[in-house]
Design a protein around this nucleic acid. Structure first.
Length: 564
RNA sequence: UGGGGAGUCGUCUAAUGGCAGGACAGCAGACUCUGGAUCUGUGUGUCGGGGUUCGAAUCCCUGCUCCCCAGCCA
């Protein structure tokens, strides 16, 4: 990292902030906020927003609040609040004492509403929901004014007070801003500010039976908290005139709303509605299914917060609608774990190998490096004996071109151990290969030959007598198409689910080192990929999730050979 | 003639009137006790058409395409 390079703005939001800093618009302050609604779990798209908001505060020496946008008691739950806090913390961000809730400000918001009523800028409407919709007009035709629009200030005050007091059933009245029913911007056609909801709120209980709408809450919350830059996604661009209108009419501190493009990821769905369907309809095991793009899913899969933050940095921030290739996310994880993950040998589809000239009963402790990228991680001992398991894929009776691995009569290296040569192939009555006989060269201990001869192939292995059994879960993309919504006429994204997104392997053989692994620990299984120990593990049966596979150039060659 | 926003390699993103650059993906090669990692090489990309200018991705005009908005959701 070079300190001599001037940092400078890296996206349009930083440009705005630096301009504001130059002109002293907010007295040199930068104060952002991350405002989730506690009605679902956070996903990788939220991570982009979290990294942006907290990252900006960090970069400019400001603050970032965590604020729960809890203005709809019918959808929000405490469970989500806890999960969201855990996820933000896990990502590596700290909101200090600044944990706020829109519901903290309900009283203040009520006073703001009263102020607008007194100014003649808000009124109680008694039209039904259906009537309000009709009066709103359409995208191309102006709306018309409600017959209740010109109620007196006194009547509005009285009605609004009685709404709060609980005198009316849900839907009987709403409080609306008096703006312009003919505006081209539908949000300005007398938007609803308050609705009656006789529902128990997860924090305020039954204290309130009227709740503010998002538009009447968000900007005022920003104002109360002294937010300088209120960053949200593109679909709120149309709301900005309303955001500004409320603040101006209320004559209170006025933050600025800035919109950026939300994250879209190939082969992935990120809408709460769709994620909820995947969970509720059982296509995945839960919000934290390792195939889910939720932060809890990614965490269980084996993703690191560092990889996700690096990803957020790399995708940038702009106003273009875009779809980021999920391969970039995978790349970020590989890059992080390559640097940090403990290497270990694991045989996923075992094939027994008897080394016929190795002394029966002998065990040697072979020294293996823990991470060739980081010598400080040291070495470990791996037991070697007469019977070992290798990967079934690492042997071919009739090897194709460019196959460097084991075949009859061929010599390969067992990593960190010996060079072995295949002498016999043992089959069962069905012709199925059940066992290989090999000989080893005692002169090659550690894996290199004193005569300098080279072998093309290096295999991982596990000593049969010392192996631990394990279950391994191989995950693949949840959807078959880059755009899961690209479904045949009359079908939806579920039509594009990948039927092979999870493959469960049992009877896997892993090296004894893994006995001490804890759920959440991540490893590189040599030549396979990065794996994370799953909380489903028991003492008898550890379970490992594949977070991401290693790049596999043999698979690529094989595919090419198959297609030509 | 409803309103708002956006168009740069396959994908994402830089450039702020002065050499269109980076990352991912792909392809080719080198190296390797992980067919990993690493390294090297590799690009017919500025939505179209006009204009201003010595010079335009950038400024002007014009056309086209895409996205968002009609919850008492956020």
């Amino acid at each position: 990292m070079s300190d001599t390079e001037p940092k400078g703005p890296t996206n349009f939001i930083e440009e705005i902030i630096e301009e504001d800093l130059r002109t002293g618009k907010y007295g040199g302050r930068v104060h952002t906020r991350f405002p989730p609604e506690p009605n679902g779990y956070l996903h990788i798209g939220h991570a982009k927003s979290i990294c942006l908001n907290f990252g900006l505060a960090e970069k400019y020496g400001g603050k970032c609040n965590l604020r729960f946008d809890d203005t709809n008691p019918t959808k929000e739950e405490e469970e989500y609040v806890q999960a969201i806090k855990e996820d933000v913390r896990w990502l590596g961000f700290d909101w200090g004492e600044r944990e706020f809730y829109a519901s903290d400000y309900f009283e203040q918001l009520y006073e703001f509403a009263v102020k607008l009523i007194k100014k003649g800028k808000a009124y109680v409407d008694s039209l039904s929901a259906e009537e309000i919709r009709q009066y709103r007009g359409t995208l191309t035709e102006p709306g018309k004014e409600s017959p209740y629009r010109n109620r007196s200030v006194e009547e509005n005050l009285d009605l609004f007070e009685r709404m709060r007091a609980g005198e009316f059933p849900d839907g009987a009245h709403v409080l609306r801003a008096k703006i312009d029913m003919s505006s081209g911007n539908l949000n300005m056609r007398d938007p609803v500010m308050y609705r009656i909801l006789h529902a128990t709120h997860h924090r305020t209980g039954d204290k309130w039976c009227i709740y503010p709408m998002y538009d009447f809450a968000h900007g005022q919350c920003d104002s109360i908290e002294g937010i300088t830059h209120s960053i949200c996604t593109l679909e709120f661009e149309d709301h900005r005139p309303l955001y500004d209108w409320f603040l101006d009419e209320l004559e209170i501190y006025h933050p600025q709303q800035i919109e950026f493009a939300r994250l879209n990821l190939s082969y992935t769905v990120l809408s709460k509605r769709k994620l909820l369907r995947l969970v509720n309809e059982g296509y995945v095991s839960g919000w934290d299914d390792p195939r889910m793009p939720t932060l809890s899913g990614l965490r269980r899969r084996g993703y690191t917060p560092e990889a996700i933050r690096d990803f957020a940095d790399r995708i940038g921030v702009a106003k273009n609608n875009s779809v980021v290739d999920v391969a970039l996310l995978e790349h970020c994880l590989r890059e992080d774990l390559n640097r940090r993950a403990q290497r270990v040998m694991a045989v996923l589809r075992p094939l027994k190998v008897v080394i016929t000239n190795y002394p029966e009963g002998q065990v040697e402790e072979m020294e293996a490096v823990n991470n060739p990228e980081d010598a400080s991680m040291g070495t470990r001992k791996v037991p070697f004996s007469r019977v070992v398991y290798i990967e079934r894929d690492d042997f071919r009776e009739d090897p194709p071109k460019k196959f460097y691995r084991l075949a009859p009569g061929r010599e390969v290296r067992l990593m960190h151990a010996y060079l072995i040569t295949c002498t016999d192939v043992i089959k069962d009555e069905n012709g199925e290969i059940v066992e290989l006989h090999c000989t080893y060269d005692p002169e090659t201990r550690g894996g290199s030959a004193p005569d300098g001869r080279k072998v093309k192939g290096t295999l991982h292995w596990v000593s049969a007598a010392h192996a631990l059994d394990a279950e391994v879960r191989l995950y693949d993309r949840l959807f078959l198409k880059p755009d899961p919504d690209d479904a045949p006429e009359g079908q939806d994204f579920l039509a594009n689910l990948n039927p092979n997104s999870l493959e469960v392997l049992t009877g896997c053989k892993v090296e004894p080192f893994l006995a001490s692994a804890q759920p959440g620990d991540r490893f590189q299984f040599l030549r396979h990929g990065y794996f994370c120990k799953d909380p489903d593990s028991t003492d008898e049966m550890p379970v490992f999730n594949r977070a991401v596979a290693l790049r596999d150039s043999w698979a690529k060659i094989e595919r090419k050979q198959a297609s030509s």
